[in-house]
Amino acid sequence: MNQEEIILQKFDTFENGSKFISENFQNLQKNYGDKFIAVKEDKILFNSDSFETLLEKLKKFQLNDIIIQFIPVKGEIILY
C-alpha cells in the first residue's frame, strides 16, 4: 500500500467512527450523556467524566486514529 492509500484507509476508518456517533447519537446521549467517549470504527473504547481520565485509559492507543467527543445531553454549541 502506498502512502496515499494508507491515508485514505485511515480516513475511511475515521469516517466509520464518525458515522457511528452520528447515527447512534440518541443512544449515546442516554448511555454516555455528559461524558467523554473514545470511539474507533463502531466501538466505544472507553468513556469517562473527564478528558484527563479518558486519556489515562487511552495510554496504550495511538490517539490519531481515535475520535474523542464529549456527548452533551442538550445545549447549543456557539463559538465565534
Binding site: I7, F11, T13, F14, E15, I21, Q29, Q69, P72, G75
Partner: peptide, 23 residues
C-alpha cells in the same frame, strides 16, 4: 435528536506530524 441537531463534516489533518481525522 430533538435537543441536538447538528451538521457534521469530517476532515483529515495532513499537517506534518499531526496526521489524523477531525470530527
Amino acid at each position: 435528536t430533538k435537543d441536538a441537531e447538528r451538521v457534521i463534516f469530517n476532515i483529515f489533518s495532513m499537517y506534518p506530524r499531526c496526521i489524523g481525522g477531525i470530527f
